[in-house]
C-alpha cells in the first residue's frame, strides 16, 4: 500500500514499469524498489533512520531516460536520513528527478546530505520535486556539496509541487572549475506559518566558469523566508548572476541577502533582488479581465513559481 501511494503521489507509474528507466524508491529507511541501466551503478545500504546511497555513472555514458529517485515517507511521524554520493564520469550525461513525497506528514523530518562530483565534460541535472501534506508538519533539511570539473554542466531545480512547506532549510554549494556552468534554482510557495531558508552558494574558481543562482519565493499568511545567495568569482572571465524574487502577501515576511564577491579584475558578477507585494499593474490587468483579487494573486504567483 505504501509503495503504491508513493508511486501515485510522485506520478512515476510509467517509470516503475519500464525496464529501461533507472529508479530507486525508498520509504522511510527501506529500499522498496530499484532498477538500473547499463553504465549506472546504484548501491544502497540501510542505516538507522535512513539509507546510504552511492550512485556512479561510468565515463562516456549517456543515460537516455531520466532517472527517478523517490524518497518518501508514508508515515505520519518519522525521521528519514538520506546520505547520497553521486559520481558522474567524464563525458557522461544524466538527468535525475528526485521525488520527495511526504503525503501524510504530521511530524516528519527529512534530512539529506549529498556529495556530488560531475566529471570533465559531463552534464548533470537534478530536479527535486516535493510533495508534502497539508498539515505543515514537516521539516526538510537538504544539504549538498557539488564539484564541477572542467567543462561540466549542472542544473538543479528545487520546487514544492503540492502541500505545505512546513520548514525547509536548503544549503547547497557548488564549486565550478574551468569552463563549467552551473544553474541552481529554488521555487517555493510558503503559507500558514511555514519557514523557508535557502542558502545557495557558488564558487567560480575556474577560468570562464559561469553560474546563476535563482530563488523565487512567495510568502503568505504568516510565512517567513530568508534567502542567502552567495556567488564568488575568483577566476579570469568568470561570470555570474544572482536573481532573487520574493512576493509577500498577508503577514508574510521575507528577507534576501545576495552576496557577490569578485576577486579577479576580469571576472564579473551581477545581482538583482526584489521583495514586495504583487505588482499592481499585473493585478489590475487580471482584475480587469474579471478575476477577483485573490484569484489574480494566485495566478501571478503560480506563474512566478512555474
Amino acid at each position: 500500500m505504501s509503495i503504491d501511494q508513493l508511486i501515485k503521489e510522485a506520478n512515476i507509474h510509467s517509470a516503475v514499469h519500464d525496464k529501461n528507466t533507472a529508479r530507486l524508491v525508498i520509504n522511510k529507511d527501506k529500499v522498496v524498489d530499484t532498477n538500473t541501466v547499463e553504465g549506472l551503478k546504484v548501491d544502497t545500504k540501510e542505516i538507522k533512520d535512513g539509507v546510504d546511497i552511492n550512485i556512479s555513472l561510468e565515463k562516456n555514458t549517456v543515460v537516455e531516460n531520466p532517472v527517478h529517485l523517490c524518497f518518501g515517507v508514508t508515515h505520519k511521524k518519522a525521521i528519514q536520513k538520506i546520505v547520497i554520493n553521486i559520481d558522474i564520469g567524464e563525458n557522461s550525461k544524466i538527468d535525475i528527478f528526485s521525488h520527495c513525497v511526504f503525503p501524510n506528514a504530521v511530524d516528519v523530518k527529512h534530512i539529506m546530505d549529498g556529495k556530488i562530483q560531475v566529471g570533465k565534460n559531463a552534464s548533470y541535472s537534478y530536479t527535486e520535486k516535493h510533495i508534502h501534506s497539508e498539515e505543515g508538519g514537516i521539516t526538510v533539511i537538504p544539504k549538498a556539496k557539488i564539484i564541477l570539473e572542467e567543462n561540466a554542466r549542472l542544473k538543479t531545480i528545487f520546487e514544492l509541487i503540492r502541500g505545505r512547506v512546513g520548514s525547509i532549510d536548503i544549503d547547497y554549494e557548488t564549486t565550478c572549475k574551468d569552463n563549467s556552468v552551473m544553474e541552481m534554482t529554488a521555487k517555493i510557495d510558503g503559507k500558514g506559518d511555514d519557514i523557508i531558508k535557502i542558502k545557495e552558494a557558488g564558487n567560480l574558481i575556474g577560468k570562464w566558469s559561469r553560474g546563476v543562482l535563482t530563488s523565487k519565493v512567495a510568502v503568505r499568511d504568516n510565512a517567513r523566508a530568508e534567502i542567502y545567495n552567495k556567488l564568488i568569482a575568483s577566476a579570469e572571465f568568470a561570470r555570474g548572476h544572482v536573481d532573487c524574487k520574493e512576493v509577500i502577501q498577508g503577514n508574510g515576511k521575507a528577507s534576501a541577502i545576495p552576496i557577490v564577491e569578485v576577486s579577479n579584475p576580469r571576472a564579473h558578477v551581477t545581482h538583482e533582488a526584489s521583495i514586495g507585494s504583487v505588482d499592481s499593474k499585473q493585478l489590475q490587468t487580471l482584475m480587469s479581465r474579471g478575476l477577483s483579487e485573490d484569484k489574480a494573486v494566485e495566478l501571478i504567483i503560480d506563474g512566478l513559481l512555474s
Binding site: T285, D302, G303, L304, S306
Partner: peptide
C-alpha cells in the same frame, strides 16, 4: 504598455 507576467503562459 501591457504588464509582464513572469512564467505565466499566453494560454493561461
Amino acid at each position: 504598455e501591457p504588464a509582464r507576467f513572469e512564467g505565466l503562459t499566453v494560454e493561461k
